[in-house]
Every structure is written in C-alpha cells, then in structure tokens.
Simulated assay, not measured.
Amino acid sequence: MTTGEGAVRLRPPRNAVDRRAVPWWRVQLLVTTAVPVAVLAVLGWLITPARFWLLLPAAIVAVLGLACAALLPSWWFRVHRWEVTEDAVYVRTGALWQEWRIAPMSRIQTVDTVRGPLEQSFRLATVTVTTASSKGALRIEGLDHELAAELAERLTAITRATPGDAT
C-alpha cells in the first residue's frame, strides 16, 4: 500500500491463524500452569510446617493460570496475523508488546514445518522461516497442518525463483 510519493505504508497482514489455535493455546497455558501448581501442592501436603506457605502460592498460580488461559488465547487470536506475498513474509504477533516482522524473499534461507504432539492433536502446525537476521526466525504458529504444508511449498518455490544470496 503506498501513500504520497511512493512511500510504502505498513498495514496489518491479512491472514488470521486457524481458529483451533485458541484451544491449543489454552491447553498449552493450562499444562504450563499445572506443573508448578502440582509441585507446590504435593510439597505443601508433604511438608506439614510449611503447608500454608506452599499451598497459598499454588492457589495463586492456579488462579492466575486459569485467568490467562481464559483470556489470552482469544486476544492472541485477534492480534496474530500473517501474510505471504511474492516479495516478503509478514508476521504480527504479541499481546501487549506487538511485534511486526518482515522477511524479504531474497533473505529466506530455510522453511520448516513443525508439528509437536499437542499441535498434532489439534491438526495444527507451525511454519518457521529462517533468515540471516540476528533477530531469529519468523514463526507462523497455529496454522492448519495442510495449509502449513502448502505454505512451505509455496515459500520454497518463491524463494527458489527470487534472485539474491539469502545472506
């Protein structure tokens, strides 16, 4: 999108992640919360003199974890966006601190598709686009696994046809 005398204006990427990313993120948060809560609760029951000082933090962590699992995934779904054009890969992520990343096709070195066990259960995948940037790879999480495979193939074809040395 251009404005004025050929200046390029940054716009939000067009594509949202898959709707199944919301429950996937919820389960991730719940699992991440359950581990410290379980450890604190077990220690609280085993160590009688310190019971209150271990069960209270367990309860606080559990309440905060449940609140995060209830609220954050829906918010992330509204914020996380991605788009691939013939020129670049665009990714916007974050909740409070939003991050916009752009990887020109000529700088892409590798394209990977990853499906962890939890992602597989939700039929989702993550596409990772690696460049020579010191900031690290771009990750498009929460994609339908078939769309992720198609996107990886498309990116590979576009980068193969794009002149440049990817450094």
Rank of each mutant, 00 (worst) to 15 (best):
V84E: 02
T128L: 08
L151T: 01
A62C: 07
G65F: 08
A59P: 13
R139N: 11
I140S: 07
W53M: 12
L143T: 03
A70S: 07
T131E: 01
S74K: 13
G65E: 11
V127L: 00
T128A: 08
T156G: 13
L118P: 00
V89I: 06
V127A: 00
A149I: 04
L56S: 06
T93F: 09
A137P: 02
R154N: 10
T126Y: 03
I60F: 07
A137Y: 01
R101V: 10
G65Y: 09
R51A: 10
V91W: 02
E141Q: 14
T156R: 11
L151S: 01
A161K: 13
A148F: 05
D87F: 14
T126Q: 06
A157K: 10
A152G: 08
A125I: 00
R81D: 03
A88E: 15
V61Q: 08
A70N: 06
T159S: 11
I60M: 05
A50D: 05
V63D: 00
L138Y: 03
L72F: 14
P104W: 00
L71I: 10
D87A: 15
R160G: 09
T128D: 04
P104T: 02
G65V: 07
Q120P: 04
T93L: 08
L46Y: 11
R160P: 04
I158H: 06
A157D: 12
E86L: 11
L71E: 06
Y90R: 14
I108W: 03
A157G: 07
T126N: 04
M105P: 02
P49H: 04
R78F: 09
V89R: 04
F122P: 02
L72E: 12
F52L: 15
V79K: 08
P57R: 07
L56G: 05
R51M: 09
A95M: 13
A152T: 12
V114N: 09
G94A: 10
E83N: 07
S121W: 10
L72H: 13
L66I: 12
R123S: 15
D112V: 10
L138S: 05
A62V: 02
W75C: 09
E99Q: 14
R115G: 12
E83W: 04
L43A: 13
L66H: 09
T128C: 03
